[in-house]
Design a protein around this nucleic acid. Structure first.
Lengths: 203, 203
DNA sequence: TTATTTACTGAACACAGTTTAGTAAAATTA
DNA sequence: TAATTTTACTAAACTGTGTTCAGTAAATAA
């Protein structure tokens, strides 16, 4: 009677195949080329089969979004080694912008795209996102406690910093700054992070 | 032989009818319900007719984007009455965030959506956007000249402020901050503007 | 009055996401 | 082993996109 377990294992394998194919298409060809039919081609099954493993396209995008949050959270782990809160905050910002600029399609899906958010609106688990956000919020909190930031509310502080960094990278990712050539974008993102750090931190 | 002029006038009227219909759908029903067929219904012509006045859907979205930039620029005109650069900068920010939060669908089209940007990528006229951006840049410039800001480069300064404000409003517009209830969003946007002003301005 | 240009549309095409009816293989039961 | 049921899968279709094209009727020009 161990066949039920094998079934479940096979099912998970299939789900991962689909996600892997979707991610590959997503990164290599961009969002607009991620179609159920292309995913089906990639895994060598029919389009209808995809629907036996995922309710609809948005659900696949949600799952992919979670993969993105896992990767971001993983990068954030190096922060545990940094004790000084000011340094830690700067590193936290750096990790965020590097992740964004190096994985633009994935970042877009996680923080900009409309598609996969319908599912999340309700009580649902934005858990993964919260996990990453908490890293930032706690670092800001630490900066306040140890007197590196004069600001009072860690929530507003963390949110402002997030907004600033998200603002810069999303302007570039969605091509809203034609006055800035692509090859200067990374440099400007870093400069703004440094600028923000000087303004926020007291020493 | 004045018929050629009337023809041109009729043509412009038709273009405006289409844009008006598109804008109405856009604002009342949201982007996903703006289809060529719905626009055609609205103006009581066939879908094919729309293509006699606009090359494709993206071109219509571009035109709508320009309408948005006109509206933003129009709001910015009240800034001319403000002489003190610090006050002016704050008002400039306030106008921006008010416009964004009051016209979320339009703001989305102007600053977030992917669709209408393919056309703009080349040398093309991002003129309207530049016009509005220059208002901000010149205000920052003025603040620097009159010693209200210690920062050296007006470009980085203006861009940072834009990024911060765009970051906040776009996080809300694309529902990426489930921890913030809708009724508090406006309040937070304002708080962050105030926060930024305190940090940036020297007095 | 005739010829030509203009403004418009019905019908189709290609391509999405998604559903459904059916099939062949595997698993279960007898 | 033989019969039955369940499972895994797919071909084909449905709806709804953006877009094109051949044809038509009215307005204009000759």
């Amino acid at each position: 009677m161990g066949s039920a377990e094998r079934k479940e294992r096979d099912r998970q394998e299939m789900r991962e195949m689909i996600l892997t194919a979707a991610k590959k298409l997503f990164i290599q060809e961009g969002f607009e080329h991620v179609t159920i039919r292309r995913i089906a081609d990639e895994i060598e099954y029919s389009p209808a089969t995809v629907y036996l493993y995922f309710a609809d396209k948005d659900t696949i995008l949600c799952a992919l979004q979670e993969v993105g949050f896992q990767e971001l959270y993983k990068r954030q782990q190096v922060l545990n080694a940094i004790k000084n809160p000011a340094e830690k905050l700067r590193a936290c910002g750096k990790i965020y912008i590097d992740f964004a600029m190096e994985n633009q399609e994935l970042y877009d899906l996680m923080f900009i795209m409309r598609a996969p958010m319908k599912k999340f609106l309700e009580p649902h688990e934005w858990t993964l996102g919260k996990q990453s956000y908490d890293v930032l919020r706690e670092t800001v909190q630490q900066c306040i406690e140890e007197g590196y930031i004069k600001a009072q509310d860690p929530n507003i502080g963390a949110f402002s910093l997030w907004a600033l960094l998200h603002g810069v990278v999303s302007i570039f990712i969605r091509d809203r700054a034609p006055m800035v050539p692509k090859e200067h974008q990374g440099q400007i993102v870093e400069k703004i992070l440094g600028f923000a750090m000087e303004e926020i931190l007291d020493k």
